[in-house]
Nucleic acid binder design. Structure first.
Lengths: 162, 162
DNA sequence: TATTGTTATACTCTATAACTATA
DNA sequence: TATAGTTATAGAGTATAACAATA
């Protein structure tokens, strides 16, 4: 708090390379890796007219049948209110259709159209190619360890947290 | 599009465990790992009255001196307009002080107060303990590979992207 | 003219509340 | 009374534009 300071040492030119204290932080690394992948994913799916959330909906619908909107929302871990807009967008593009469940007329069964199935196939190929490019700078063993680690942290640990 | 459908197979009870198609997706895994860590980080830092962004500012300030607001913003990869509110909050808590640069009177030199330095020390210990707990379910080798992979993807690859 | 700090604005994402129709 | 779909609203976070002071 005294006025004595070293006489203004030169500051290195401002670059976007983070200084030492940041690049070893797990929070910094995870956040920026996620953002980088999100951008790559958006770019890879843009030609197909969908985004990552919409692709996830299509994939869930293809894996299980029949599913209502809340059930899809539960699989994806999103709120049922956000699912409405998601299904709206997919329906506008003709990729899914809403259908009242005969067994429970409160439920909207969401089902893939043939166009939706075709879009899903092409989107999955685009996603796989994107993930391969994204992991390309890693050697095979490190890439496998990354996926294994994330799966343990996200999938296995959830059981404990519940 | 015909009405012929299998007679409504039973739907498994809705749980939050993602179905097969999601847990192998890099995007899903990275996003949820990041969210999980962000929650753990917030909980670990809450007793100190700061959040992860504020801790990052303190750490950058401790590593380089002197730094103006834009320079800190550049190190963190955030906009200079968001840096204003960040420094406001830290200054209100007495952790940093603004000081006009004599060399360039447009610049605000941001410097740690003794309280800020103390807060940084305790926050860094809390963060390290939190990261250890977060990585605890991984064996040592996998945890090291995770950090190494993220560092390559985030730090090394940026040079190429620029 | 360009840069720094600042404010105001807009836009995205998400969470909450409330309404309806069904059960 | 509870659930499914829907809408509206509010909040956090972030990006953009503009302005004053300074270079």
């Amino acid at each position: 708090m005294t006025g004595e300071r070293p006489p203004v040492p030169p500051v290195p030119p401002a670059r976007h390379v983070p200084p030492v204290p940041l690049e070893s932080r797990l929070g910094y690394l995870l956040k920026h890796a996620q953002q980088r992948l999100a951008r790559a994913s958006a770019a890879a799916l843009a030609p197909l007219g969908i985004d990552g959330h919409e692709l996830a909906v299509l994939a869930v619908l293809a894996a299980e049948y029949p599913l209502s909107q809340v059930e899809v929302a539960g699989r994806l871990g999103v709120d049922r209110t956000t699912m409405v807009a998601l299904v709206d967008g997919l329906e506008d593009q003709g990729l899914v259709e809403r259908r009242r469940s005969p067994a429970d007329r409160r439920k909207n069964i969401v089902e893939l159209t043939p166009e939706g199935r075709d879009c899903l196939d092409r989107a999955e190929r685009a996603r796989l190619a994107m993930e391969r490019r994204f992991l390309d700078p890693l050697d095979e063993e490190t890439a496998a360890a990354l996926v294994r680690a994330l799966r343990i942290l996200v999938v296995e640990e959830r059981r404990i947290a519940e």
